[in-house]
Simulated scan of single mutants.
Amino acid sequence: MQGKIVTWNDDRGFGFIAPDDGSAQLFFHISAVRTSVRRPQQGDRVAFETTRDRSGRLKAAWVTLENAAAQPQAPRRAPGSAPRGRPAQSSPLRLLGGAALLVLLFLGWLLTQGPLSGLFTPTPAGPGSALQVEAPIQREIDKTLALIRRGGPYPHSQDGTVFQNRERRLPAQARGYYREYTVRTPGLSHRGPRRIVTGGNPPVIYYYTEDHYQSFRVLEPRP
């Protein structure tokens, strides 16, 4: 869903969103904001999901600020750096920090270029590509695929609705070609970021996103 922040209390870290569909304003807390470049402001356009609090009241979750730009900051001297004109002095802590950085860089190389790359390198969406996901998320994907094959019933009212592909991450198709379904994230009380998006009616292709529509990979359904 989309809407606009009509009230924001930055000191207390909460506000209210007016949905574009004209429904009642929704409370949201700073902990529900998934954009880290800056804090929300009154008048910001947002995309969000809905969930219920412990009292059963509807509230906004997984709030993303649209077109939020990072605030420019004046350059400043790094902590511990020597003033201009004086040579920097090494310290044991700085040496340890450099060694830790080298270790992290080496581990990153192992995960992307080394012998472990096949376990962690994602498969991009495209013709013939398929995503292999390990348990326990694979079990949740299989459950959602089974519900799609049966035609429901689905746990969320948004499941089976038209996915509009606003971010243009998927190939352009006529409206109604794509449908979205929730893949449950264990431990979360709301829909979370994982979805399966089908293409065609009946579906001829399945896409999987684990980051709330920011990236997609082709999913090969299990028999």
Rank of each mutant, 00 (worst) to 15 (best):
R150N: 04
W62D: 12
N9T: 02
Y177N: 02
Y213F: 13
R194E: 05
R149P: 00
V37D: 03
E66C: 10
E140T: 05
I5Y: 01
P136T: 10
V37K: 06
G176M: 08
A172F: 04
P186C: 00
A68K: 15
T50R: 11
P136G: 07
G192F: 00
G118V: 07
E66F: 08
R194M: 12
A135M: 06
P115D: 10
A61R: 09
P171F: 11
Y213H: 07
Y154Q: 07
R149E: 04
L119Y: 09
N9C: 05
S55P: 05
I196G: 00
A172T: 10
P153Q: 12
Y213W: 10
A74T: 12
N67M: 04
T35D: 09
G13W: 08
L26G: 05
V133S: 12
N67Q: 14
H29K: 13
D10T: 10
R175M: 07
P115N: 05
N201A: 15
R84S: 11
P72N: 10
P223D: 13
Y206W: 14
L104P: 08
L131G: 09
R184N: 04
L96A: 15
P122H: 05
G15F: 00
I205S: 12
Q2C: 01
T50A: 05
I5H: 05
A61D: 14
R45K: 08
T209G: 08
Y181H: 03
R45T: 01
H212I: 06
Y207W: 11
N165M: 02
Y213R: 07
D21V: 00
G114L: 03
L96T: 12
R45Y: 01
N67K: 09
I148P: 00
D44N: 10
P40T: 01
G15Y: 00
T7H: 15
Q164D: 14
N67W: 03
Y206F: 14
E167G: 09
G160Y: 06
R77D: 04
E220F: 06
V33N: 09
E134R: 13
R150K: 15
P202D: 04
G108I: 06
W8R: 01
P223A: 13
S90L: 13
G15R: 05
R139M: 07
F120N: 02
G97W: 14
S36I: 01
T35H: 08
Q214K: 15
G85L: 03
P115E: 10
L188C: 07
G192D: 00
L26K: 03
T7Y: 13
W8A: 02
P221R: 09
P193V: 02
V204Q: 11
L131W: 06
K59P: 05
V6A: 08
Q173R: 12
G114K: 13
A82P: 06
D211E: 07
L219K: 06
R52C: 02
L111T: 05
L65T: 07
R76P: 04
T121S: 14
A100P: 03
N165D: 04
Q41E: 13
L107Q: 10
G56A: 02
H212F: 12
V162N: 10
L96G: 11
G13T: 00
A174S: 14
G13A: 06
V204H: 11
P75D: 14
I148L: 06
I137E: 11
Q113L: 15
F14H: 02
A100W: 12
V204C: 02
Y178I: 05
R52Y: 11
A24W: 05
D21F: 11
R94M: 08
A18E: 15
